[in-house]
Write a protein that binds this DNA or RNA. Structure first.
Length: 431
RNA sequence: GGAGAGAUGGCAGAGUGGUCGAAUGCGGUGGUCUUGAAAACCAUUGAGGGUCACACCUCCGGGGGUUCGAAUCCCUCUCUCUCCGCCA
């Protein structure tokens, strides 16, 4: 078991010690004024180290005395030994006080640290809302289907590809049943994504779909997003909201050799999200589900390689969408729209022709050391010392909205056209 | 669900109150030897904090206690394994 109270730190304190100004500037992109908070953190850090120094010296003295006492007893000098015991009693008191102080300093330091989100890098645009996200690429023409275009939930029901009614019957809303060619299309997409990811150098994993508390804390779902995960209280397990959780945790508390790097992993999994508070058009059809399928990619790199890895992951995800012939755009999220743990995030959105809106199908992020600091994922450098790795992940890809876009964009008088690249996986070319 | 065993460094595995951060073996790294490699031999090899660098401190599953002193004794929690039962 991890000691959560002691493994809570997100930003590296050593980073703040040397880059406080950069952190303050970066956090402004999120609309956070952190100058005072960081100053407080550094002051606490200073106090903590002073206290530890004093504590260490007291302990050293106490250790020394204990050894002397041991020696004296062995030599039969019981009197002298007992005399020394008085002094150790005093030291014991002092140690106790200093330790209590140390615990307090640590916990307030950690409390302050975990309140700070990751520092956005230079590239990240300033801004508060999704309107401030920067569109960095757009690919493919938006189909013009006129007003006869049907939304995917109508197509799916009519063609008996996805049975929302059956899902409600056997489980509840947000748990659709895929049927016939709908099921086969979904399976084809999973296989297609996995195969493409493997070709791109990612190693396939099949992780557990439930994780323990340690893993939930590791990737940062706990304690903040506890309400978003399905919780099996009887066994203290959580249903994974994404394969990122089990896959990244594979490397928790590991020290990797440079020769093993970079780590590139991919995994298909079902994902479970409670999505408390969602409503309206956002949850219509496949737009937002409690259970959905996703193929994820996760990377661990040396710090100097993480930006190049991010670019290659973005290119890779783009290539998947190109092959599926779906119109999409890539957004570089602004500071205010980024997740708490990310230093930079690119979102991929596909065009949904009947809903006439963009749907997010992938989010590719570089977390730098934010996750690895908590999970102690390190590598041994040329200097023989251990250093934190950078972690990155992205969807490649999330299935439901891809399915939605394929159904809507490719509908025509003949039926729904399946992109050529999927034919060998589906076994059919039209629905 | 019932019964039992166990948790020590990358792995295996000693260690029942002081000089144990921890024997030994394997693995890793460096070297000797060799045309090269293997073998053999020699040396080295846990993590974290702290320091310019040392010193020093902490850690033997987690937490608490006894003691001048705990990997070793006590309490407690968690987890793992084995056998039986049930079952894909």
């Amino acid at each position: 078991m991890l000691n959560f109270a002691k493994n809570f730190i997100m930003l590296e304190i050593s980073y703040l010690r040397t880059n406080a100004a950069e952190a303050v500037t970066g956090l402004r992109k999120r609309g956070i004024e952190a100058e005072q908070a960081i100053a407080d953190i550094l002051r606490l850090d200073e106090l903590r180290r002073q206290n530890q120094n004093e504590l260490d010296q007291t302990l050293a003295e106490s250790n020394k005395l204990s050894k002397e006492i041991g020696m004296l007893f062995k030599q039969g000098k019981g009197e002298e030994a007992n005399a020394l015991k008085n002094r150790t009693a005093e030291l014991k008191e002092k140690v106790k006080e200093l330790q209590q102080e140390q615990e307090q300093l640590k916990s307030s330091l950690e409390q302050d640290l975990v309140a700070l989100p990751n520092v956005p890098i230079d590239l990240v645009p300033d801004g508060k809302t999704p309107e401030d996200n920067l569109e960095v690429a757009r690919h493919g023409d938006l189909p013009n289907l006129g007003n006869t275009a049907k939304p995917h939930w109508e197509l799916a029901e009519e063609l008996k590809l996805i049975r929302f009614d059956l899902g409600v019957k056997i489980t509840g809303a947000g748990f659709p049943v895929y049927q016939g060619k709908g099921a086969r299309l979904q399976r084809a997409l999973i296989n297609f994504f996995l195969e493409e990811n493997i070709k791109a150098g990612f190693e396939e994993y099949q992780p557990p779909l439930m994780v323990n508390e340690d893993s939930g804390f590791g990737t940062g779902q706990l304690p903040d997003k506890e309400g978003q995960m399905y919780h099996i209280t009887e066994d203290k397990l959580y249903a994974i909201p994404t394969a990122e959780v089990p896959v990244t945790n594979i490397f928790r508390n590991e020290i990797l050799e440079e020769s093993e790097l970079p780590i590139k992993a991919t995994a298909y999994s079902a994902c479970f999200r409670r999505e408390a508070g969602s409503y309206g058009k956002d949850v219509r059809g496949l737009n937002r589900l409690h259970q959905f399928d996703k193929v994820e990619v996760v990377s661990l790199t040396k710090p100097e390689d993480s930006m190049a890895m991010l670019d290659s992951m973005v290119d890779h995800v783009a290539s998947l969408l190109n092959k599926l012939e779906l119109p999409y755009r890539i957004l570089r999220l602004c500071g205010g729209d980024m997740g708490f743990t990310s230093a930079i995030t690119y979102d991929f959105e596909v065009w949904s022709a009947a809903q006439e809106r963009w749907l997010e199908v992938s989010s590719v992020s570089n977390f730098k050391t934010f996750q690895t600091n908590r999970m102690k994922i390190r590598y041994r450098g040329e200097d023989k010392k251990t250093h934190l790795l950078h972690s990155l992940n992205g969807s490649a890809l999330a299935l439901p909205r891809i399915l939605a876009a394929l159904l809507e964009n490719n509908q025509g008088p003949e039926g729904i056209r399946i992109p050529e690249v999927l034919h060998s996986y589906t076994g059919f070319e039209i629905i």
